[in-house]
Simulated scan of single mutants.
Amino acid sequence: MRTSMSQNRCMSETDPGCGLRESKKRRTRDKIRRRAMKLFTDKGYSQTTVDDIAAAADISPRTFFRYFPSKEMLVIADDLDEILVAAIRAQPDDMPPLMAVRVALDDAFQQVADDDWTTDVTRQQLLFTVPELRSALFSELERTIEMLASLLAERTGRTADDFEVRVTAGAVVGAMMGSGLNTSTDHARRSQALKFLEAGLPLR
């Protein structure tokens, strides 16, 4: 999760309201990110330039900067946030908050193509392992807590700066981090971590 994805991102060309122009932008953005992640994996983040990414994506460097203000922001930006936010808001009002987050994560997982999840796992691996991106990692975690706090506040009728709301949001992020974000069973481990948190962390 990171900087909010572009407004009204189309998830498929058949989505209502997804015009040809938006669809083309989505495809181009996705192509840039996927080609970039492959280069980062093959060559390393530091050794990959914007020119390299542009060439791999068959675009000009100028076009790259229309979609991402920098190479760093290509990694930091989380295009899956909007899906997760919508999924949490779609859960029944009487569902317990932690359960709502877990079920929403499961729902979001079903909506997103395998390639998008693979790209996101690579993105998170870079945030945790590339020294140049470490400074962005704290901001990423802080922003994620803020996003979850706002969503939990909506569900509970509290404010986003409520102590218990913020602690809960932080616990959710901590549980997912503790589950091991960089594993091949990433989603299953996150879901398991949230179930453990729901149960009150019954460590024996």
Rank of each mutant, 00 (worst) to 15 (best):
V50D: 07
P61Q: 06
L84Q: 10
A77R: 12
K31W: 08
G200D: 10
D58H: 14
R66T: 10
R204F: 11
V50G: 03
S150Q: 07
Q7R: 10
V112N: 08
R29A: 15
S23T: 14
D93Q: 08
S4T: 08
L152D: 08
T129F: 04
A188G: 05
A87D: 12
P131M: 11
E164Y: 02
S6G: 07
Q111E: 15
G157F: 02
S23R: 10
R35E: 15
K71G: 01
G44S: 00
R102C: 11
E154N: 02
D58N: 15
M177Y: 03
M1V: 08
E22S: 14
C18P: 04
G180C: 08
R62A: 15
R9T: 14
A175Y: 04
A153Q: 02
D79K: 01
K38P: 00
A100Q: 07
K38A: 07
R2L: 05
D42Q: 12
L152H: 09
P131E: 11
D58Q: 14
I83Y: 11
P61C: 04
S135E: 07
P69G: 04
Q47N: 13
M176K: 08
M37E: 09
G17M: 06
T183L: 03
M1N: 04
C18Y: 05
E164C: 02
G157K: 01
G19P: 00
F40V: 00
V101Q: 06
F163T: 05
S12K: 09
P16H: 04
L137Q: 06
R66Y: 09
T48H: 10
A100Y: 06
K38H: 07
R189E: 06
E146S: 12
D52Q: 07
A104E: 11
V112L: 11
I76E: 03
D107W: 07
R35S: 12
F68S: 13
A169M: 01
T118C: 06
R27H: 14
H187V: 14
E72M: 05
R27C: 10
S4V: 09
A160P: 01
V167C: 02
A188Q: 11
K31E: 12
S60C: 08
Q111H: 13
D93S: 11
F128L: 15
R166C: 01
E146R: 12
K38Q: 11
L181T: 03
M37C: 06
D161E: 12
D107T: 14
R123W: 10
E72T: 13
A90Q: 10
R66E: 12
L20G: 09
P61D: 05
E22Y: 00
V173A: 09
V121A: 14
Q124W: 13
V75W: 02
E146I: 10
G174F: 04
R143P: 01
R89D: 06
R27L: 15
L201R: 05
